[in-house]
Design a protein around this nucleic acid. Structure first.
Lengths: 204, 204
DNA sequence: GCGAAACGATACAGATCGGTATACCTCTTC
DNA sequence: GAAGAGGTATACCGATCTGTATCGTTTCGC
């Protein structure tokens, strides 16, 4: 394994264990044992455990947002449908056997102080996720794109939270239906053509 | 302090510290120091730390649900308004300086295994909270009370999750507006009188 | 008022935590 | 093929973790 591969391998292992057991409950000894790496190696790549957590979250942040973007762009072209398709992406993540809730919410839940770097990293991720929804809402020409994005975002968080507890995917589908209902009632700068449904069909 | 008072004092102290720092990050040494109690005393009242956590969550569960019930019954009489008033209650908890997210979601986030007693306690709380919403939705004579309750519940979780990250109360108000919009469109077994709004006024 | 139960204080056990030090091995690179 | 960087393995550090043992003191029920 090359140096960069070791780093990636450590980040993947850490992410998996953090997701499985949480951040405090996952010791560095477990991480290095699972990664099959000496402790010295871990500390050559990361200053300390917090640095590892931050690097892992940063990696996950990019992964998640890129995956959602790719999924949405591949599965829908109409901007309104794209907003709804974000729920389909969420559903795939929730259906994953390894799903144990949003890692950023967990991170913020274990590092509740708003000045904690881990909390701030989670906050940053959520801001970027919201920004993407605003981008979609803007492209969909909603009259209040920020409000729409915040609503979709709230439904995302609610769906994932309920799914974290119940461990079923239904909340995500329900959230999508709620989003659909809110979107068709929302004001648009360019209203859909009369007589049709403006392409806002519900496909799921 | 009488024996029962000490137990209550320990539970209150533990709950405050769990809320402030999380469950793993709060050691029993910190709890007893903050409570001004000997370690022997804590372990005379609780078998171990997990037992303390479970007792604390159980207490909090009853407190929370009673508080919501009392608030809702005091601030609204119409069943539909009561469903909306649950958000006003949430807003008071979110506005609290000590608010750091839902303690049960945090507990489930730190104890992700579904067979973990702490996870199960959180699950139980969420089920009871949902049951109350179903009770309200049933009283409001919605055609699909379970679906309505699940939708309100999802908005609750979303609002609290977003508030946990942003540390502002706005998400709760937004969730209430979304709930209002969904409720007025929902089918009722006894439809509201035509010409009026059926008492589904938005007061907040 | 007397005995038992519960309290506080402290010390301690054993495990685990994050992190470092040391010594040896294995590659790459000039 | 020597140098050096980065790997492994292991031992170790001090701190902290949950939980127990000891012991003197306080408090409460009878």
């Amino acid at each position: 394994m090359r140096r960069s591969e070791i780093r990636e391998h450590l980040l993947e292992t850490a992410l998996r264990l953090f997701n499985q057991h949480g951040y405090h409950a996952t010791g560095v000894d477990l991480i290095i044992a699972d990664a099959g790496v000496a402790k010295t190696t871990l500390y050559r790549h990361f200053e300390n455990k917090e640095d590892l957590i931050l690097a892992a979250l940063e990696r996950r942040d990019e992964e998640d947002r890129n995956a959602m973007r790719a999924f949405v762009e591949q599965h829908a072209s109409d901007p309104v449908e794209r907003l709804l398709t974000t729920f389909d992406f969420l559903e795939t993540t929730v259906r994953d056997k390894q799903f144990r809730g949003c890692m950023f919410m967990s991170a913020a839940g274990e590092h509740k102080d708003t000045v904690d770097p881990v909390f701030r990293a989670s906050l940053m991720h959520k801001r970027l996720a919201l920004a993407y929804l605003e981008e979609l809402a803007h492209a969909a020409r909603f009259a209040e794109p920020k409000r729409i994005a915040a609503e979709i975002n709230l439904l995302h968080e609610g769906a994932v939270a309920v799914a974290q507890i119940t461990r079923v995917a239904e909340p995500v589908r329900q959230a999508k239906r709620m989003a659909h209902q809110l979107l068709v009632a929302a004001e648009r700068l360019t209203p859909p053509t009369r007589g049709g449904d403006g392409g806002n069909r519900m496909h799921g």
